[in-house]
């Protein structure tokens, strides 16, 4: 492998480099995936555009709406005070990615753009209804993460675009998130399946909304469609046993997942 190394100091400069070199260029965030892909000769960029000198890409903004810069590391997600409560699934998803060495360097933006069907943070962001901002030579555009992810290694990102940030609403007062992963081992393992859930209750303990996302079981992480959940008061109980009951209300896996499996 051999390439030229660029260190732009702004998003505009980074995007201009990408536009100039086209498919010969690759952005470098953490590099934990890109360097492996280069070694395996899956990609052979002539130009590597490092994003580390671009200011502001590694910040977490949690005043009201949550905004993650694309270069926020898994380490930073794990340790962010804002994610220790209702948004804890972000911590739970981030902490099962690789070992510490990978999490200290690997970024949330890289995790999204690589579009691995087994990316652990992605289902969490899907249930949080996250949107991504992509900046290209003609300016910025925003789209829902659910629309951004197309398939294995495939996203709606154009070659001259840079994913700069991810945003999602602040958690509602009575809401919670959770994330679980099953792998063949407990660490350093690609998910066999992972699941993220967002749940919101109304004042009567009725389930006001739920979103569920599954990773590693399809060409991309799957998300339940938003639809109103009908539940009678106190069907959502804090007791462990009731969690195993059949879900009530009109929520059907078969129909609520988008029929993407037929595409490939």
């Amino acid at each position: 492998m051999s390439f030229d190394f660029h260190e732009p100091a702004s998003i505009a400069e980074a995007v201009a480099l990408a536009a100039r070199f086209g498919t010969e260029a690759r952005f470098l965030a953490g590099g934990t995936d890109l360097l492996v892909q280069i070694r395996r000769k899956r990609v052979a960029p002539r130009h590597v555009v490092s994003l580390h000198r671009v200011p502001g890409l590694d910040t977490i903004d949690a005043n009201g709406e949550i905004r993650l810069g694309a270069l926020v590391t898994h380490r930073a997600l794990e340790r962010a005070p804002a994610f220790q409560g209702a948004l804890r699934a972000l911590v739970e998803g981030a902490r099962v990615v690789g070992g510490h060495q990978i999490r200290n360097v690997g970024t949330v933006g890289g995790n999204i753009v690589n579009a691995s069907p087994a990316a652990d943070v992605v289902p969490v962001l899907l249930v949080l209804d996250a949107a991504v901002t992509c900046v290209g030579p003609n300016g910025a555009r925003e789209m829902k993460l659910d629309e951004f992810l197309l398939g294995p290694g495939e996203t709606a990102l154009r070659p001259d675009e840079l994913l700069t940030s991810i945003r999602f609403p602040a958690p509602a007062l009575r809401s919670a998130t959770g994330f679980l992963k099953a792998g063949r081992r407990r660490a350093m393992e690609i998910s066999v399946v992972c699941v993220a859930v967002w749940l919101s209750l109304d004042g009567d303990d009725r389930c006001a909304g739920v979103r569920i996302s599954l990773g590693a079981v399809g060409p991309r992480a799957l998300r339940s469609c938003d639809r109103p959940v009908e539940s009678s008061p106190r069907t959502v109980s804090r007791s462990r046993t009731s969690a195993h009951r059949q879900p009530t209300g009109g929520f059907s896996w078969k129909h609520s997942f988008r029929a993407r499996s037929g595409q490939r």
């Binding site: 590099g31 490092s50 580390h52 510490h100 060495q101 360097v105």
Partner: peptide, 16 residues
């Protein structure tokens, strides 16, 4: 250790 954090030096360009 990179700035006190454990990292894999095989996945880090010297330029970084």
């Amino acid at each position: 250790l990179l700035d006190g954090m454990a990292v894999d030096s095989c996945l880090l360009l010297a330029a970084q």
